[in-house]
Design a protein around this nucleic acid. Structure first.
Length: 269
DNA sequence: AACATACTCAACCGCACTGTA
DNA sequence: TTACAGTGCGGTTGAGTATGT
């Protein structure tokens, strides 16, 4: 059975896509995005998948507006480092470079407008923070020092963490509140049970295997995680269990679709 | 209430860097 | 050594929403 290459999808992500991406990142880790994109059948580019994961789906993400302390820090670091957004984001756990970039743009625009109107820059609420001597300095803040890994630069999943298999903690009601994907839960269980297993495969082995098996049909023979010199779990997805997994995923899709239709006939986003 | 404007945020694009075969 | 693929970063865009007139 030959996979027909469908058109690459663009634009806003649907809940289904998020769900699939989450599942596949949980299985394979947040590396090899092109492969994740391919294997998941998302019809998205690897780049798009990565961006969605990093900016939206990552379990460590904070939601909502930046706190005044975070705003101060962004301003201070920007004045120190310039537009090194990802570097700045490293100092703000749970915040993404995109978020910070957006905040900065908004802030600058506000400032420009105030200047235009002839207001003194010091009247800007955020601006005064920069000069305040009572503000905590960058280095005194309890954030990771530069060079440490940011929360979202995980270097791949060491384990199939429950977080990565569940969903962002947004607090908002979501499709995955609906009883949960049992297949994922049972996969986790299986992983736990097999943690002491002796057959260990690196992610590269897994991907190679996927590449090999792709000619016939897409199904990796193994699912284990070996990153940074240590392997944390060993989990073999046999062809049949892989088929079962995918099948379950697609069936979940249908279920989600049905629920969404009932919930909001107009659709989301 | 209707329209205009401002704002926010998710997503895309292009380029540069890095790792690997 | 080199070419290529994958990844990360910064800039930009545009849709949706909030606010003002």
């Amino acid at each position: 059975m030959k996979m027909v290459q469908e058109e690459i999808r663009k634009g806003p992500w649907t809940e289904r896509e998020d769900f699939k991406l989450n599942c596949f990142v949980g299985l394979f880790g947040d590396r090899r995005w092109d492969n994740i994109a391919k294997v998941s059948g998302l019809n998205r580019t690897g780049k798009s998948c990565r961006l969605r994961w990093v900016n939206y789906l990552h379990p460590g993400l904070k939601r909502g507006k930046l706190t005044p302390q975070e705003e101060r820090l962004v301003l201070e670091l920007q004045s120190k480092w310039g537009n090194r957004w990802s570097r700045i984001a490293h100092r703000l756990p749970g915040r993404t470079d995109n978020e910070i970039k957006n905040y900065w743009r908004t802030h600058m625009r506000k400032q420009a407008q105030e200047k235009k109107r002839g207001l003194s820059p010091s009247s800007s609420s955020s601006n005064s923070c920069l000069t305040s001597a009572s503000n905590p300095t960058v280095d005194s803040l309890p954030f990771p020092k530069t060079g440490e890994e940011s929360f979202y630069d995980t270097g791949g999943h060491d384990t199939i963490a429950a977080d990565s298999l569940s969903f962002p903690k947004t607090g908002e009601e979501s499709f995955y509140d609906t009883g949960g994907p049992e297949i994922i839960v049972s996969a986790e269980k299986q992983i736990e049970e097999e943690k002491a297993g002796e057959n260990v495969y690196s992610m590269d082995d897994i991907w190679k295997d996927i590449a090999l098996s792709e000619e016939k049909t897409i199904k990796p023979a193994y699912c284990s995680f070996s990153e940074g010199g240590s392997t944390f779990s060993h989990h073999a997805l046999t062809s049949s269990s892989w088929e079962y997994f995918l099948d379950s995923l697609w069936r979940m899709d249908e279920e989600i679709g049905r629920r969404n239709l009932i919930k909001s006939p107009t659709g989301g986003q």
